[in-house]
Computed example of a mutant assay.
Amino acid sequence: MPYTWTDPDTDPGSASAARELHLWPHNSLPRRGLAIFVLTTFTLLMVPLLALLGSVLLWGILPFILMAVGGIWLALSRSYYHRSILEVLTLTEDNAHLIRHNPNGALQDWECNRYWVSPQMHTTGGPVPFYVTLRGGGREVEIGAFLSEDERRALYDELVTALRPRGAEPPR
């Protein structure tokens, strides 16, 4: 799953113990795979041009092949840029703090007393099915909207468990 929980390294009873949730979009093609894909595409597009070596037609077709390969590279690079999002939810004994690092470098920040934070799941009506939000401090903020439906359902269950007050029984 494209999110992980980090447990506190300090004594769990101390006030400085914090648990963090890191969320990021899934990229099915790593950067190295992107380079291999573009190089393979270029190579396969150049094979038919071997018959045109030494003719004027080669120079008429070559710019279009280069534009196609450049377009693929540009589109996939732009996709990587738009998916370079990181959300970090920090839970301390008394506080919940969510920071979203956007692709353009801007930060979005939300903080609330942990007692008042409640996770909400909107099965319909949100921008995506099973839309998960955190409500508290007079605001409602989204979390993990870029995850798949199954991942958002699992995230919601984990948030309910993580935000439950200590010693409280799980809901039935």
Rank of each mutant, 00 (worst) to 15 (best):
S118P: 00
M1K: 00
P2E: 09
T123I: 10
D109V: 14
E158N: 07
V132T: 10
T133L: 08
R135E: 14
A17V: 03
P171T: 02
L98I: 05
D11V: 07
L50V: 14
L89T: 02
P48T: 08
Y115A: 15
S28F: 04
Q108K: 08
G33Q: 02
R139E: 15
L52V: 09
I36M: 11
M1H: 05
L52T: 14
R78C: 11
Q108D: 14
R19P: 03
H122K: 13
E20P: 00
H97K: 07
P103S: 09
W73K: 07
A18W: 00
T40S: 15
W116P: 01
E169K: 05
L62E: 10
P129E: 10
P30N: 14
F146Y: 11
H26M: 08
L91W: 07
S16N: 07
Q108F: 01
L53T: 11
D157A: 15
E149Y: 02
W116F: 15
L107Q: 07
I143T: 03
P30T: 04
R78K: 13
G60T: 12
D157S: 14
P30R: 02
N95T: 15
H26G: 09
T92R: 13
Y156S: 06
P171R: 04
S14R: 11
I36K: 05
L155F: 10
N95L: 11
S55F: 10
A162T: 09
N95W: 11
A15C: 03
L86E: 13
M67Y: 05
G71E: 03
S148R: 05
T123A: 15
G138N: 10
A17R: 01
V38M: 06
E149L: 13
G13M: 10
P129I: 09
L107E: 09
L53W: 13
S28Y: 04
L159M: 09
L66M: 11
L134K: 12
L29N: 00
L52I: 07
S84P: 00
M67K: 00
Q120M: 15
E87S: 10
